[in-house]
Design a binder for these strands. Structure first.
Lengths: 188, 188, 188, 188
DNA sequence: TATGAATGAGACTTCATTCAT
DNA sequence: AATGAATGAAGTCTCATTCAT
């Protein structure tokens, strides 16, 4: 019954992700979104009550996906686990940038957005805990150098994800190179 | 001389920089700006013809400052020069983020903004050339490992600047630690 | 016979009356209406072509009902007739308020609404004529005081209907008390 | 300094009152308002942050005015005081209707509107207290008939204000006639 | 017949920019 | 030179109504 949908919810969230990354949270408009979908602007409101809910749902989906993959990582060897995680994060390089915008979402208008945001924060914490755990174990294993404070090593590792893949290598290769650079250093 | 000075051009650009970094290009409004200055919103138009010119002038000033420092670096020892440059860039960590927003400036309204943007692009190219030059020389000196493609090493180096200084170390110390991590790697 | 009956026309008009009284004509939406019925919003259009027709039909039904009762009143004793009419009007206290909204209905879209509205106006006039007739006869009978202009007595009588029944008395009792107050006055 | 205003705050509130009475709260639009003022719609936002604040400010001004006059009434003779109050209320016949709309104002968006609404409720209570006080004293003085419950007398009195002045008498005369009708009754 | 989906018109609100004092 | 006031363009959102299943 009813008409056929002009765009699916998945298409909507995919496009939202693309546009938020391209234009930033404040540069993201529903007009822009509707121009990149097949339907009219007002149709979007059939699915989400307001702009905030759209962006929150989009971010939730991204981080939920990362969380799922990260939870499946075998943590028995810390360094190996870190490399695997790096691959996951590089695959979803947008994560960081999106999370940076998450704090801009005004949740006073929408309980749905507030709920999504809470999920996002919980997931974020879970991911950070996992990394902390692995880093600490790696340090106890003496796998990491001791002359650099752990927060610096972690910070640089974290920041690695954002490195633009200008050579357009497959993410698996790209991630492995980044890990090699991070672990082994640049000097010969 | 007429009315009392409300705010200087420097104050205006400083506040613009702060607010653009805080809110992103699209989240930056003249209303916001005037709220953080002592005068009225319309007074801003005594200095700049429109929003685009303000942001362009702000970015130009930032990159001109970096360019000046970077030009003064002694390039005789490539690795040493890179470390010095890293310090400069870390000092002006906002540079990257601001440059990312530069492309959003719509120059069709303002020749002044267009001129500033051109300057910015030239300066950006100059800085990139300097880095390429140094990296190439470092590689020829066999100071850098050969098993990782040069673009990867450069990319990671570049990305280093954005690492948030969560320990709030003095920038000189922070920059040195970043360099050590980058050059020597994380493993013990 | 096809799908299950969702809501009857009577339910639709009853709910319309309730909601128009609660929210006023401009605060009455089809969305609101459908939320208080069992079916979908679009199903309403199986019964009426547009919002105006619904409200017009609702008002017509109300005034037709009052008209029917008022026509049956025995007018031989003017004062007695007025008391009986008061009971009828108090029973349908909403009438006044609804008639006040009738003028807001835009009939340019719908001939059906225009026809209903015409009926409403005719009925309204009929009711007013009945009251005028009774009042005039009552005055000729010297049943009413002469020092107050007749329009004032009529106006106060008319306005009586809207008095909120805050003690929640049965309408018959409530109406009788109102009539006593009107006819006998407040002083001891 | 600055341009000359196109309309004053008083003009704005006067017109708001007129239009809210004419169209009801839900039928009142800023577009409508601006069409009845000299300026553009957006200019209104220089003075009030949103629609709710405008209506709240309008109602506050009306009730504050009534409160001021009602407070000045000499209450030594209850019936005389009631007659004087009736005149005041008839003069501001809109009060009741406006107060009915007051509950529709959504204050979640605006603290200013919430504050005004609180004032309105306090003032409303003060006025109701004054009437209750006078009615009770009038009853103790045996000035009012005992066979009708006091709430009915009060209710009818209250409702008197809304009687449309169809003969267009000066309000003083009109009020006196209403009072005479109420106190003495309709019968000869 | 009933309805989910689509949509344009219209209302609210913000903001860059201009104007006039 | 500084600014309060004015304004139109643009974005958010709601709703009556239509469409197609």
């Amino acid at each position: 019954m009813g008409r056929k949908q002009t765009f699916t919810e998945t298409e909507l969230l995919d496009m939202t992700k693309k546009l938020v990354l391209e234009h930033g949270y404040d540069g993201f408009h529903l007009k822009l979104l509707s121009q990149h979908l097949s339907g009219a602007r007002s149709t979007i409101y059939q699915y989400y009550a307001n702009k905030e809910e759209i962006v929150a749902a989009c971010m939730k989906r991204v981080i939920a996906n990362v969380l799922e993959h990260a939870s499946a990582v075998d943590e028995s060897d810390p360094l190996k686990a870190l490399e695997e995680l790096l691959l996951i994060y590089v695959e979803e390089a947008a994560l960081h940038q999106l999370l940076g915008d998450a704090s801009k979402i005004n949740t006073s208008n929408s309980t749905a957005a507030a709920r999504d945001l809470e999920f996002i924060e919980d997931a974020h914490q879970t991911l950070k805990n996992q990394l902390s755990r692995l880093f600490e174990r790696a340090q106890q294993d003496k796998s990491l150098r001791q002359d650099i404070p752990l927060p610096v090593l972690i910070g640089v590792f974290f920041n690695l994800f954002n490195t633009p893949n200008m050579m357009n290598l497959p993410t698996a290769d790209w991630g492995r190179l980044l890990f090699q650079t991070w672990i082994g250093g640049a000097k010969s």
